[in-house]
Design a protein around this nucleic acid. Sequence first.
RNA 1: GGAGGGGUUCCCGAGUGGCUAAAGGGAACAGACUGUAAAUCUGUCGCCGGACGGCUUCGGAGGUUCGAAUCCUCCCCCCUCCA
Length: 407
Amino acid sequence: MIRVPQELEAEWNALTRSTVDLIPEEEFLERLQAARKNRTPLRVKYGVDPSAPDLHLGHTVPIRKLKQFQDFGHQVIFLIGDFTARIGDPTGKSETRKRLTKEQVDSNARTYLEQIFKLLDEAKTQVVYNSTWLEKMTFSDVIELSSKYTVARMLEREDYKKRFKDEKPIYVHEFLYPLMQGYDSIALRSDVEIGGTDQKFNILVARELQREYGQSPQIILTLPILIGTDGMNKMSKSLNNYIGITEPPQEIFGKAMSIPDRLMADYLELTLGYAPDEVAGLMRSVEQGKLHPRDLKARLARELVATYHSATAAKAAEEEFNRVFRERDIPTDIQETTLRCEDAKLWIVKLLVQAGFAKSNREARKLITAGAVCLNTEKITDQDYEVSTGQHVLKVGKRRFLRVTVT
RNA sequence: GGAGGGGUUCCCGAGUGGCUAAAGGGAACAGACUGUAAAUCUGUCGCCGGACGGCUUCGGAGGUUCGAAUCCUCCCCCCUCCA
């Protein structure tokens, strides 16, 4: 354990909280001390790939950390990896990511920034694009850069090591990615780089490269990867297990309520910034039966809505949620539509299709057979059912409602 | 350049002439139970039709056959090893 001077304790505790790696710890402390003494804020780098413009809670984990740095007066540098995005990051998944055009990248970046400033202080954030320096590099610059790192060291990365061992291909340009990211750190002269644990290797490479280029190597600070609502995989848009920060209150609340219980502790800590001992205390209450897990999760859901919308919206979302899912009542605010019918009756299958709940008659039939269709709180199991004229409330599945008037 | 292996429905993966819209698993969707949790159980799971019928799938194009994912020919793509 290292000894933290009293005057730095608050800062130290806040910045190191909920981190996975902090390398090297002593050096971080020294830099914090120097920063304070010389009144020169640390340059804290965080890079993103602007390929998907919608931010979700997973992204907010490192961003919250940046905010903490910002609050302690450090310089946050938000790096948009526009150059990287235009080439397509090969990491992980087999399918090569689509290359983005300059226009797409620009537009994504704008959306991205709009969203991060919900959490970060815009005036105190420096936004940079890595094409600024990477695009200008010549082939000799690239060779110069590649000569600073060895294949053996590249193969230390778990992902590469495994593929190498399994005789799976590793493309040469994949080796270039960590180098490019490392060069970003050199160009920015960063003191600290933040990232998810999946970025640990790349951030470490940057450290070595900085040393080679005569800079003092950056501190590495990694944060846990947030698991998505499916309880299995990293939160991501493509897996559709995400909670987007621009989603409507009702959605955020509902999705938060649907996460597995075992994720609650992580979410409290990582998405709301609860202190680890507070989380531990809450979880203990749950285990001892003093606190119902549902209530704790509702608190989580409420606070998330409050963060990205407002306390009022949170309250409303919770009331609506209880109304629909606990009391199995119909929502207060449901869409309405009017459908015409031929002879005073409308076939249920047609109704479902016309209402937009099924793309075809077959799909509609499937829903009916599955018992997913309710008309005025009554379950419809007969495929030949005919709906009479008048107003009805149609429910499909657990959460799709529609007020239909048949004329 | 040489040798070998392989491309099957969202994913993994069986299937080597008809019983195959294609096993099994996963994912997904729906139902029961519940706390929109977990676990479990059940159903659906190529597309279309007021449904006993039709249409389209097994890398692509041709061919053999009454009949092909399965056999033949050519082509495309991927992987491994040797150089």
